[in-house]
Simulated scan of single mutants.
Amino acid sequence: MISHAKRVARSVTVAFAAAAAFTMTVPSGNAFAIDHVQCRGGENFLKIWSHSGGRQSVDCYANRGKTSFGGWWVDKISTGNNDLIYYDANGDSVKIERWREITFPNRPPKVNAIEIL
């Protein structure tokens, strides 16, 4: 009876160790994170010109993912080599293909979030 209990315990331990090793070595699906990066000439980052509360900003982003944009008004978007979806305050989502530059001179959208695909 004791040897049977030892074999079961050993089997459980081996199975747990194998599962842990498998979890550590196999990459997990779509673990991407969008990054706010420094804007630099010659790079093909997503670049967004925006304003809010009397302040203006130019921000660049890289890598796939979604992030809050804080409800800023967007004046211009240059997608670089990124496909983009922006989510505006009206609940709409707008997709913009890579290598596009769009300006909003009259009615800029108020953007709550951006997503690089």
Rank of each mutant, 00 (worst) to 15 (best):
W99R: 10
R40Q: 10
T25Y: 06
T13F: 07
Q56E: 15
R100P: 01
E43A: 07
W99C: 05
T13V: 03
A9K: 12
D88S: 13
V12I: 15
K47Q: 09
F16M: 07
K66M: 14
R40M: 09
P108S: 04
V58Y: 03
Y86K: 06
V14A: 05
T13Q: 00
A62G: 06
T67D: 05
S3E: 03
A9F: 07
R98Y: 09
N81C: 03
I48V: 13
H51R: 03
G65E: 07
D35A: 15
A62E: 14
S11A: 15
H36E: 13
F69K: 01
G41F: 08
C60R: 08
T79W: 10
A89S: 12
S52W: 06
S3L: 10
N112L: 14
N44C: 07
A15F: 12
G42Q: 11
V94F: 09
N63V: 11
M24P: 01
F16C: 06
T25I: 12
I102V: 14
A21P: 01
R7I: 01
P27M: 05
I77W: 02
S52L: 09
I116E: 01
G41D: 12
Q38S: 15
L46G: 00
D83Y: 06
S68V: 04
V58L: 09
W72A: 08
C39M: 04
A89K: 12
A17S: 15
G29P: 15
T13S: 05
A18R: 05
R107Y: 13
I77V: 01
W99F: 12
T25V: 14
V94C: 07
R10C: 05
Y87T: 01
S93H: 11
D59E: 14
A113I: 01
G70P: 11
R98P: 00
E115I: 04
D83N: 15
S93L: 04
